[in-house]
Design a protein around this nucleic acid. Structure first.
Lengths: 350, 350
DNA sequence: GCTAGGCTGGCAATCGTTTGCCAGCAAGAT
DNA sequence: ATCTTGCTGGCAAACGATTGCCAGCCTAGC
């Protein structure tokens, strides 16, 4: 029941009959102590089940080997890929991942970031509710990587959903649609702005009339309004800001007995869990979210490892170390391509 | 770009013109120092943006104010409720939540637990892949709470899905079904065993023939086999181990042109995200997973707070403190009831 | 006027680990 | 035989916060 006291380095040293410093070196500085001594210490440490105290290490080195993933809502399926992607990459490098849910609140987010400083070496910030200035400010205190935001001086990973949306429009144009609605997302969304900017010229080029509606909250319940508005606009197809919204649209169309894709084609964005479960299965723009997570963690780790004082004379760099990422980290954000997944919610105009 | 050095208590003390010890007391021991002095220190601390070092605190106190949630697979929708529930409760008490993914491997899990010791004050273990003995062993080194497991001496939270399954069977019996399949889950699953034990007598009581098939891997792709086996068994309804399996069953039935619920009624378990998205919407046993998460965190926190040396003379206990939870913590696991959510995948026999 | 006691604030030890510096020792060079 | 050099291991000072102990001071009571 009661948790037993952990053996410390002192215990190990005593049991091995050496000084604490020797024990420390035996475990962390191969070659620095006599091989026999080292073996003895290692054996004793194993025997005692010794595990170095993370707090003590952190106190001395200032590094915690911990990275936070800061999200507005852990349960939004869109973020699962990020959780998994960053988590996998961090684990590979021996880092611990902590999850911070900011409950969609800028205030909570700011507070979280404040508290995190010192507890973690860095953070991946996704779908931040903060202003560019606030993020830049926080970045002065904590190594930060942003996802789907561009903050000058802060490394970032961007998902090129705009490119996927253009593919979606091309797909619809190919099916004969000439009047297409884009049900837009939050005005604060960087990617929403970027998509509109990409869709306009694409529509012109394809000879499609693009009607931008919204903004809609990117949740299922907003789908009803979006569906109604799209019908009213006389469109034969609707592209939504994200899949949740698309789910809501499908529900509403079903409730109004509008056949999909016969009466209306629907395209979502993100390809979250469930997109292939709805009927008809949703045609959607798939984003490599998990890869984005890995990449974000990559950028952060590159920066953290680069910060290590010991590495400073290592300017030559290891050719196997993907120097491109390290070099790009501080500069332009990484842009990851997306692609359209065609399922059953799109079809030719009746 | 470069992260600036954090102000320490020494900086605050120097700026306020007091000793470090005084500064410390001003911030943590209200009343211990002169009010004027305290105000000055607090003001300076705020001005400097001082944040106490978590590592230093942890080193001294042995407590990290951090709790881990250990899961076999972070991305399994079933666990989202746990993530959210434990997270919310932990945040309320000022704890940080760290997420550990064990990749469905007992080895990784054991290793994770080993590394976690010392980094966290405790852990919530869900769907552990470890044996009872291994868990009991780990519990000696780290305060543990298990979800859906019964380990003597280790507090736990159980979801009474068995009860919900009985409701499901009653629902089916009421619709006139007389031959029902239970598509079982992993043999190692505690809850699966418990469900079978509860379904047998319920079936006898209701005059329903119960056919247990499986075990099936609790994933969507296994649904095809399960659906085929259920059809072959001549059943008119199937209850599945979980919703993912049910999704697979629905898909297969659709592919084989078996109408649902006309040709086959389908009931899932867990009510994960997507259960109301599939067509027909899935009738399923809803588990209060988020509540289970809160409860698990509750038990863990109660135990952690109880361990605090300072609280030992507080045996009377605060009447507002929900002493029931604290008392129950070490004893029997908490059992949370579940209930059936009826949607469109169940109906009368044709 | 003197002492007892309360209030306030400082000193220093402590937590567990790492690491710069130094001392002892042995072996090889001169 | 002496000096140099390299290897090994110990001492002690950090890291930042907390806290037991103590000293100084002020006030109140006699």
């Amino acid at each position: 029941m009661a948790v037993r006291r952990q053996p410390t380095l002192r215990d190990v040293a005593a049991a091995a009959g050496v000084a604490v410093s020797t024990a420390s070196r035996a475990l962390t500085r191969p070659g620095r102590v006599n091989a026999d001594t080292a073996d003895r210490v290692v054996a004793v440490a194993k025997e005692l089940g010794y595990i170095p105290s993370a707090s003590a290490r952190a106190l001395l080195s200032g590094r915690t080997a911990t990275v936070a993933l800061v999200l507005p809502d852990v349960t939004n399926p869109f973020f699962f890929g990020l959780v998994r992607g960053t988590g996998a990459r961090l684990r590979e490098s021996g880092y611990v991942q902590v999850l911070a849910d900011t409950e969609e609140s800028a205030e909570v987010e700011l507070d979280t970031l404040r508290k995190l400083r010192g507890q973690v070496d860095g953070a991946v910030l996704a779908a931040s509710r903060l202003s560019d200035e606030q993020i830049a400010g926080a970045a002065a205190d904590l190594a930060l990587v942003v996802v789907n935001r561009t903050i000058p001086g802060t490394p970032g990973v961007l998902l090129d959903t705009a490119g996927g949306m253009v593919q979606a429009l091309e797909h619809l144009a190919g099916l004969g649609h000439t009047r297409v609605v884009y049900a837009s997302g939050p005005v604060t969304s960087w990617s929403d702005r970027r998509r509109r900017e990409a869709l306009e010229p694409a529509a012109a080029r394809l000879g499609v009339e693009l009607v931008v509606l919204g903004p809609y909250a990117p949740v299922r319940s907003s789908g009803a309004q979006a569906a109604d508005a799209a019908l009213e606009a006389g469109a034969t197809a609707v592209i939504t800001f994200n899949d949740l919204l698309a789910f809501g649209v499908l529900e509403r169309l079903d409730a109004r007995d509008v056949p999909v894709p016969g009466g209306m084609s629907v395209i979502g964005c993100d390809d979250i869990f469930g997109a292939d479960l709805v009927r008809p299965a949703l045609t959607t723009v798939e984003s490599p979210v998990e890869r984005a997570g890995r990449m974000a963690a990559d950028l952060l780790l590159a920066r953290l490892e680069g910060d290590r004082p010991g590495d400073e004379d290592d300017l030559g760099g290891d050719p196997d170390d993907e120097p491109a990422v390290v070099a790009r980290g501080a500069a332009d954000p990484v842009l990851l391509p997306t692609h359209l997944v065609v399922r059953s919610s799109t079809g030719p105009v009746d």
